[in-house]
């Protein structure tokens, strides 16, 4: 008769009873499917991009809900980092305030002069930009992309291409829009290209993101006179961004200049979307509309009637 040994008699709940998990064929299937998706993404399949953005916009309410408990944790983290930097920040602000006091007086003088000169020259007033302020609900900054999702979309008249700013300057531009959300491509993203003017000489160049915190300046003329610390702002070239939006200052080395952005893109909380429509886009639209209308008129009306419709005042 088998002797019952004490050390082999256990009260067991899991050990030895459950057989443990094993690799199943479904795992191989899922790995194969994931590899296929990755390959399609690498080939930049347009269908994938569309489906991905639609799926992301469906998840917007979930992210908005998740932000509610996450917000206090974020606030605690922010207040801790603020407390740590408080001494340095106070000193920096004190010095900046002294500089700004002298600049304020100078700016008021110049503002008066500019207003007088503009009145004399009958300058067309600058376009007043409308905007909407929105909350950042998801941050997609990683190895592949630098973008954030905001909780304002088509419902708030946000459109693709609109520039996005915060109190410190330009942040990026809208690249995808859903009814209640939009994706902002940050200025640091690999695919971001922003026409800029640099320093007091207004040297033209392109600010090119490379997924690092300091985007690089490219296409600067060889004989360009720029220095470290020069201000960098949008030039307005191409009509994607309005001219004069602050970006940051030249940093790094002059052989390979980069820009230290004013806006802290890692800590975006609220951003404003500027309703800036590309003027060139409107112009080409107007031309194509006129062309189409002209063609229609040519077929439907006598030639002199169609010429009469083309008022010179409408041409931009």
């Amino acid at each position: 008769m088998t002797r019952l040994k004490d050390h082999n008699l256990f009260l067991r709940r899991t050990d030895g009873v459950a057989p443990g998990k094993r690799m199943r064929p479904v795992l191989l299937l899922l790995v194969f499917a994931a590899s296929g998706l990755l390959l399609l993404s690498r080939l930049d399949h347009s269908m994938l991009g569309d489906v991905r953005w639609r799926a992301a916009s469906w998840l917007t309410p979930v992210l908005q809900g998740a932000m509610i408990p996450a917000q206090p944790v974020r606030e605690i983290g922010r207040s801790i980092s603020t407390q740590v930097d408080l001494g340095n920040e106070l000193e920096r602000l004190r010095q900046e305030n002294q500089k700004l006091e002298s600049w304020k007086w100078r700016a008021q003088q110049l503002e008066g002069k500019v207003a007088d000169l503009e009145a004399l020259a009958k300058v067309v007033p600058e376009q007043k930009l409308d905007f909407v302020t929105s909350r950042v609900i998801s941050d997609a900054s990683g190895a592949f992309v630098r973008s954030v999702t905001i909780d304002a979309g088509r419902g708030r008249n946000v459109k693709e291409g609109y520039p996005v700013v915060n109190a410190d300057g330009l942040v990026g531009r809208i690249v995808d829009v859903a009814p209640d959300a939009a994706r902002v491509l940050l200025a640091t993203d690999l695919n971001s290209r922003i026409p800029v003017r640099i320093g007091p000489n207004a040297v033209r160049g392109i600010l090119a993101g490379d997924n690092s915190s300091r985007p690089k300046l490219i296409y600067i003329p060889d004989d360009a006179n720029i220095a470290i610390g020069d201000d960098v702002a949008t030039s307005g070239t191409g009509g994607v961004f309005p001219a004069g939006l602050r970006l940051g200052a030249v940093a790094g080395s002059l052989s390979e200049p980069r820009v230290a952005l004013r806006a802290d893109l890692d800590r975006l909380d609220y951003v404003s979307v500027l309703f800036f429509a590309d003027p060139f886009h409107d112009l080409t639209d107007e031309l194509s509309n006129r062309k189409t209308a002209g063609e229609v008129n040519n077929t439907a009306s006598p030639p002199n009637a169609s010429l009469g419709n083309a008022s010179p005042g409408k041409a931009k």
Partner: peptide, 19 residues
């Protein structure tokens, strides 16, 4: 896949990492 969608990265990347 959800993380790939939310982070706007290539689809399948985090799927493969998690698998």
């Amino acid at each position: 896949l959800t993380l790939d969608v939310l982070t706007q990265g290539p689809l399948g990347y985090w799927v493969l990492v998690y698998l």
